[in-house]
Structure formats: structure tokens, C-alpha cells
Computed example of a mutant assay.
Amino acid sequence: MSIEKIVCVPDSFKGSATAAQAAAALAAGARQVFPRAEVVELPFADGGEGTLDALLAVWGREAETVEVVDAIGRPRTARFGRSADGATAILEAAEGNGLPHVSDVGAQPLRADTYGVGLIARHLLDAGVEEILLCIGGSASTDGGLGLLAALGARIDYDDDAAGFGGGRLHAVRSIDLEGLHPAARGVRWRIAVDVDNPLTGERGAAAVFGPQKGASAADVATLDAGLSHLADVVAAHSGADAGELRATAGFGAAGGMPLALVPLLSAEVLPGSRLVAEAVGLDAALADADLVLTGEGALDTQSLGGKVVDAVRTRAPGGAAVVVIAGTVKLTAADVRAAGLTAAFSIAPGAASLDELLAAAPALIEDAAANACALLDR
């Protein structure tokens, strides 16, 4: 097989290698076998955690920081990124409402909110960005994005006098006043990256599916689900949207229902995270004339084929290109791999080893697995 161009486009190997490190390792392995080939490194992500670092690597930019608060109002330093021209910003919501940042105090699913996410966004609006790429995975909150709106200057009127914007208070929201909203909030382009298709409420909704992961009891889930349903009525009354559609729209259940506030009130777009990242990094153009595509992630399984990085790569690779997956673990059979349109999949595990040993040696193991995979095509 003649190999003239190789594109290395992996996700991060969580806990062991960033997407940029994985791309560099894949490229190093490819160059061992095909030293004359053009090798392109394109770190990738699916819109969840790790997307900030992936885009910064592609843009050749460093992360910037701003002082905000976490999901329960404690001060923290959040990271964000901007393109070289300052027009486009990448905001990982988990920097302001991430579950790991509140794990030290125990779950507080009714209290947690998105106010810190809004503080990051307000800083970006102050800086004059024209587009915000909002990646909303890993959240601790289920507040329908209400805290974010409040941080941007919206006034939330309640039927009670309690404090905070958490999901436990959604049932008491009476109205939303946008008169004091940041002047740029409705002029900037908002694009929200989601990696789930869950609706806002119901059996597959934000509270029922993701609430328990954030520490919600059965009673909490019922409270949060009812609160999100009520907030949909309030938002619909303010925006003219249909409340039933807001409750049922695929993707609105992501990150505790954050799209609910942003789509009807700020004209935000919701799209699959892998598509957003693909557009941002120019994936289609990079793959157009590739002979070999090396992709990978921590675990290759059935979820990998449903909107994740491997799925984005396999569906965009040109028909004549070989597409090889290098993963920490491969949970698909050889028949599954072929049926998915992939050429082959290889695990980086060289033999019996502990998880800690594999994590520590991941970049070297990725490089070695890539070299072995490439050797099979060197004929």
C-alpha cells in the first residue's frame, strides 16, 4: 500500500495522555515506518472535557485564566482559550461548574449551579469575542442554565427569598428579566457542543439520567425534573418558544439542561461536539487526501461509534484511506471493527501489566502500537 500522507487524529487517553500527546506519539510511530510520508498531527475531542486543550494545541495557543466560582460558589481559577485573532473563544463549562471541583464537600445536586460558567462567558464578552464554543460535559449542576443567565446580567424573579440559582429552586422561578443582560450576549454567536441526545425532562431527561451521577437521590431527581419542566414553561412564556418542544428536544438534557436557557433566549445553536470540533480544526480538509488515518482513545467500544472521536474520523475519512484505531483497550470484536468501516484496531497493552503501569507508559506504548500497525501496511 502506497502511503504518502498520514493524519494522526486521536482523542485524549484520559488520565495518561492528552490528545496532543497522543497525536505526537502516533506520528512518531508512523514516522518510524514511513519516514518520507507527510505526517499531520491533529489533536481532537468530542466536545467534552479535553476539548479546550485539543483546540489550543491545534491553534498553537496557550490557555488563559480568569477568577470565577465553582458550582457551589467558591472561588476558583478557570481556564479558557481564544483563537489567534481573538474572535473565537473556547469555553469548557466544567471549568465553572465541573463535578470534580466540588467532590471534596460531597454532592449538592440541588444547590449546584452554572453561575461560574456565566462569569467566564461574561469575561469573554467583555473581551469582544464574536463566537463562543461552549463545551458542556462534566457538570455538577442541573439548573437549566439559569445561573449562567444570572451571571450575564439577567434578573431572576422567584416566589421565595432563598439564595442561589441551583436546580432545587427552579420550581420557584416566576419570571426572567433580560433588560440588564450583557449588551453583547445576544450579538455573539453561541455554539453548544453536546455528546448526548437526551431531552430535558422525563425518563431520559437531565435529572433522571444524569442526576444520580451528581449525587441526586430519587427525591432529588423528582424535584429537579419538575423544576426543569417548570422552567421550560417560564422560558417559553418569555421567548415565544413551545414549552413541550423545549422539554422534548434532543440534546437539551445535556449538562443539567444548560441549553434550555441559551437556545431560546440567546439564539444558541446545539450541535454534536465532534462536529463542532471538526469544523473548528478543519478536519475534513486535513483528511481529504490521506492514505492512512490513525485515531484513538482510551477505550474503543460501542459508544465510540456513536458521535465520539473515532466515529467522527471514520465517517469523514476518504474511501481509499486505511483507518486504524490505537486504544488503551479494545472492546469490539474484529468483526465489529470491520463492520464499522475501520481497517483494524490495536490495544497499546503489550502484555500483563497493571493499570498504573499502562497509564505511566501510555505515550511510549501508543507510539509502539502505531509503529506496529504501520508495519502491516508497509508493503
Rank of each mutant, 00 (worst) to 15 (best):
E92G: 11
E64R: 14
V105P: 03
G81V: 12
E95Q: 12
S83L: 06
D70Y: 04
Q108A: 15
G50Y: 09
T51A: 13
P100V: 00
R82E: 03
D70V: 05
E64I: 09
V102R: 14
A57Y: 01
D53N: 10
R82S: 09
T77L: 10
G81L: 14
R74G: 03
A71E: 09
G86F: 08
G86T: 14
A93P: 11
R79H: 02
I72P: 06
L91K: 12
S83V: 01
G81D: 07
N97P: 02
A71I: 10
A87N: 13
R61S: 00
A87R: 15
R79D: 08
L55V: 07
A107M: 05
G60V: 12
V58H: 00
P100A: 03
G81F: 08
V68W: 04
T51L: 12
W59V: 01
T51F: 00
G106W: 09
R82T: 11
D85I: 13
T51Y: 08
T77Q: 03
G98Y: 02
E92Q: 09
H101D: 14
E49P: 01
T88P: 05
G60C: 02
T65M: 11
G98N: 12
G73T: 13
P75S: 03
E49T: 12
A57T: 07
I72M: 09
D85E: 10
L56P: 06
A84R: 15
A78F: 01
P100N: 07
S83A: 07
P100M: 09
P75M: 02
R61M: 15
G106V: 11
G98D: 06
P100T: 05
E62G: 06
D70W: 07
G81P: 00
E95H: 01
G50L: 04
S83N: 14
A93Y: 08
A84M: 12
